[in-house]
Design a protein around this nucleic acid. Sequence first.
DNA 1: TTCTTTTTGACACAAGTTGTCAAAAAGAAT
DNA 2: ATTCTTTTTGACAACTTGTGTCAAAAAGAA
Lengths: 92, 92
Amino acid sequence: MRFPEWIKQIRKDRQMPQRLLAAALEIDTATYSKIEKGERRVKAEQVVIIADTLKADKEELLALWLADQVTAVVEDEHKVADKALNIAKKKN
Amino acid sequence: MRFPEWIKQIRKDRQMPQRLLAAALEIDTATYSKIEKGERRVKAEQVVIIADTLKADKEELLALWLADQVTAVVEDEHKVADKALNIAKKKN
DNA sequence: TTCTTTTTGACACAAGTTGTCAAAAAGAAT
DNA sequence: ATTCTTTTTGACAACTTGTGTCAAAAAGAA
């Protein structure tokens, strides 16, 4: 599951309206809606705020978010993705 | 080794001036210079042109290039981690 | 229906990226 | 040392992309 769907899921579990998260992020609900739809990018700091507001696991949420970033980079390069990931892995 | 240094290396091996690569990419040498310095981003299509011009392995070059993209994303995350740790530190 | 929440599209503004130019700096060759 | 070529730099405008807001529509709940 991707980050946007994931936070939507948690939010629904908590029965929170988008309004609350929008307020925490200091954006309007239109923008927040777009975040959950994957039409607006989220910064790492915002992920932290979202995690706090949702009382969700910060690490897990950040990891999920980061995975999305990486996926976005490699998604049109399936051919070389594996090779690239191996190289990137070695660099860590 | 990162993509920019890598292509610079190959270019030097081939004893080619930047001028030739700039021409192949249809940009001026100033811009190409910045590419080798990592001050300008390269698109996948440009990587292919570079590989062709340098007679280098296309797949390998693409993989290296993509690895750089991934690494960049992950490095950003390290910065966030540092920030978080600093905040946590202050709270002690 | 009425009230709340969510989604959409158009829009302006902000922020980042790009390539070029002119000039400086570095390097090679004579 | 001078000349010629290559490489690098900084300023700049053009372009691209991202961001948030607003108003209105759509969806959902009471």
